[in-house]
Design a protein around this nucleic acid. Structure first.
Ligand SMILES: [Mn+2]
Ligand SMILES: [Mn+2]
Ligand SMILES: [Mn+2]
Ligand SMILES: [Mn+2]
Lengths: 218, 218
DNA sequence: TTATTAATTTAGGCATCCCAAAAAGAAAAT
DNA sequence: ATTTTCTTTTTGGGATGCCTAAATTAATAA
């Protein structure tokens, strides 16, 4: 199995299992990787042989300790590159994900640690996601999705779970960048859209969008 | 054909044809890429279909204009990364080639131009090789190999044609880095080894090594 | 020129990575 | 409990990239 194939599978399984607490279905993996489910059946079998996952037929897949270790290393490379591209090379937070998706597969420990050192060993990337350290330790947060926020309370934007340019550009337009403060003034029963105030302006956020915004109470 | 496969073939053909003046044999390509000659026969056929080369059966291969254009772009990416790794990230000239060999395949014009701009749009990489500009213009030099140097004359080291760590470490040991000045004091008829003075020390350089060192008279 | 040697190509095969369609299995609805 | 629906797996196959061994062609030596 090509290393790049392995890495893209593991990253997908990790994210779909929400930090490895859940078993992941073939269909979910297929959806994320834009593959046919039949292809994924083959893929997870091979990953099982390589001891990166435990795969149970007709049931699902979860990462092994070795799988988690490698995955956190890939995630580290990805997020360090995103941060370096944004902070040192002047790219926007909406541009860095696509480039990091390629750079992450260049596996050179000295290179990544050098970039991290230049950045001052950051703990968060430009989207608010935690960066694992060299040993695989990763910050765990008790942040919630904006879609789970409560009426009347104040929140601060901590991150996003969608890294697409279209979504990030949309957020920027409404000043919903990381660190932005907001107050929930209405939650529509009809479509679960959220009306909030940010930078003194009222914005209505669809439930689809609010499920991709990570916040913390203040 | 995978893009990475294409790029590694084209780069190899370019270098073997000494800047595209010669027709290249399958065996030479196979040697450089560590492939079986039979594999190369298939490879050059496909590159011909893609119009990157003209391949004539049982005769040889040369790059087309489109092939040269793409190749110079790959070489630009490779050499910009080598320079960035050395100048901005503190890697040694013996380390950068291997890392750049992977980074070169990440094709993002904005990224490479940003790196180049930070470096002040350099014209030479850490091994003294010219860096093509965005349009594919590349410095041509009338440098010679140390193996072609004449007795008694003084030279300055301008570059190397072997980027392996072992060779570059060997050069460093004898202070034969880029910019070093040297004087030829003997050329052995027996084995074509060259005796020279560099940094006030006498060094004997084998013909194999002297063929990989690029110099200019001073 | 003919024989020998070297380079190239062809033929057949294997591994990887992917797909569509059919078959089997599991889950949900009636 | 049976049917319907959804998911997963199996089967068979296409494309790429590589190999070895055999056949062909070209180059060199005798
Ligand atoms: Mn990302
Ligand atoms: Mn990736
Ligand atoms: Mn190099
Ligand atoms: Mn390469």
């Amino acid at each position: 199995m090509r290393q790049e194939t392995i890495e893209n599978y593991l990253k997908t399984i990790y994210h779909l299992s929400s930090h490895n607490t859940l078993i992941v279905s073939n269909q979910k993996i297929a959806g994320k990787l834009h593959l046919n489910p039949a292809t994924v059946t083959e893929g997870v079998k091979k990953l099982h042989e390589l001891k990166y996952v435990v795969y149970e037929k007709s049931y699902g897949t979860r990462l092994t300790a070795a799988g988690i270790k490698l995955t956190l290393d890939i995630i580290r490379r990805h997020r360090i590159w995103e941060t370096y591209l944004a902070k040192e090379l002047g790219f926007g937070w909406d541009e860095v994900h696509a480039i990091a998706e390629e750079l992450e597969h260049v596996n050179n420990v000295k290179l990544i640690n050098k970039l991290a050192a230049i950045l001052g060993n950051p703990i968060y990337d430009p989207h608010g996601d935690p960066i694992p350290d060299e040993k695989g330790n990763i910050q765990k947060s008790n942040f919630i999705k904006l879609s789970e926020a409560k009426l009347g309370l104040n929140y601060i934007v901590m991150g996003v779970t969608d890294h697409s340019t279209t979504f990030l550009k949309y957020l920027e337009k409404h000043h919903l960048i990381i660190g932005a403060r907001l107050n929930i003034i209405a939650i529509e029963d009809f479509d679960n859209s959220i009306l909030l105030v940010c930078k003194k302006k009222e914005v209505s956020i669809s439930s689809k969008a609010s499920a991709c915004i990570i916040v913390q109470t203040i």
